[in-house]
């Protein structure tokens, strides 16, 4: 005997209203907290706006001003330097660290917890900690370099090392990426390695021909997420660039080497009261991020391997 199948209910106005009511927290939140500010900043970017007075339409003047603003270019250069040096190094350390964590070591859960620990330390606290670690006179980092007779840079007050210091601090939270790679490594089928070993492949060839392609989807995700994080870097250079003697905030570091794009945007908006210019900078950052992300996604066809193809 065949049981009667329930007839699918037709969407009615009442059901639609109920659905919308349940979804309304998100819809309202999205409209008020996301969409409206996005649209408003787009409008403000075309105005002379100071937060306090009514915006005055200036067309593309804010965007034109960027062309001749040396600090805008300096901040963009610094941020791209942080990104294009920091992200590859972050990925390399993460993959290497994940391989080590993937070994059958004693107390492995403890090691995994330890590498993740810096990720839960607030960025401001970490910044102050690293200000001491990188201190040219008393810092532990230079003390270790001294043991090995390696020249000790003036990390925080030498223009050629300011940017490197920011990257070092960003890399301190590499543990999060490392653990994601660890999960990816555990998903690589062991029989692939066994077959390769039988064929005489050494560790490097096994990594290049098996591991790298198999974890490439994770790498694609990590590269995009890290690039976005590095392009928006604010807290790390902001804390590191505090004047050591006085404690006043210069926020730009030696030779403006720590002036990140987000810091300059913040200065324009909330210190110089040029909210229109700051909004224009925000849109430029969005397009720069979008362009780099699209470029990576386009290139992914050539280097990302999906085993379900």
């Amino acid at each position: 005997m065949q049981s009667a199948r329930p007839k699918p209910s037709e969407p009615t106005g009442r059901a639609l209203l109920k659905g919308l009511a349940f979804a309304s927290p998100f819809i309202i939140g999205f409209l008020v907290l996301y969409l409206w500010p996005i649209l408003a900043s787009g409008y403000y970017s075309l105005t002379d706006f100071s937060l306090f007075k009514a915006p005055k339409w200036v067309g593309l003047a804010n965007y034109e001003r960027m062309i001749s603003d040396a600090k805008f270019w300096k901040s963009l250069y610094n941020t791209l330097f942080f990104t294009f040096v920091g992200v590859p190094v972050d990925i390399a350390i993460s993959i290497a660290g994940a391989h080590i964590l993937n070994q059958k070591l004693k107390g492995q859960p403890l090691w995994r917890a330890l590498v993740y620990l810096p990720s839960i330390v607030p960025a401001v606290a970490a910044g102050f900690l690293w200000r001491w670690l990188l201190n040219a006179q008393y810092g532990f980092v230079n003390e270790i370099l001294r043991w090995f007779r390696i020249p000790q840079p003036n990390w925080l007050l030498d223009a050629s090392w300011g940017g490197i210091s920011v990257i070092v601090l960003m890399l301190w939270t590499v543990g999060g990426t490392m653990l994601i790679y660890l999960a990816a490594l555990k998903n690589v089928p062991q029989e692939l390695y066994e077959a390769a070993e039988l064929d005489g492949a050494g560790p490097l060839r096994r990594f290049w021909h098996i591991t790298w392609p198999m974890i490439s989807p994770v790498t694609l995700f990590q590269v995009i997420v890290l690039i976005i994080a590095f392009l928006q870097v604010f807290t790390q250079p902001f804390v590191l660039s505090k004047d050591p003697g006085l404690g006043t905030q210069t926020a730009t570091g030696p030779g403006d080497s720590m002036l990140s794009y987000s810091i300059y945007l913040f200065q324009n908006g909330f210190t110089f009261l040029k909210m229109g210019y700051a909004s224009a900078m925000a849109w430029v950052l969005l397009f720069v991020t979008l362009a780099i992300t699209l470029l990576i996604l386009w290139s992914a066809k050539k280097w990302v391997f999906y085993d379900n193809r």
Partner: peptide, 20 residues
């Protein structure tokens, strides 16, 4: 300048016990 900035890097917080 290098020696000057290295020395300045060791200055402690303003008006603290480590004040320069």
């Amino acid at each position: 300048p290098a020696a000057y900035n290295k020395f300045v890097a060791g200055f402690g917080p303003y008006m603290s016990d480590q004040d320069s």
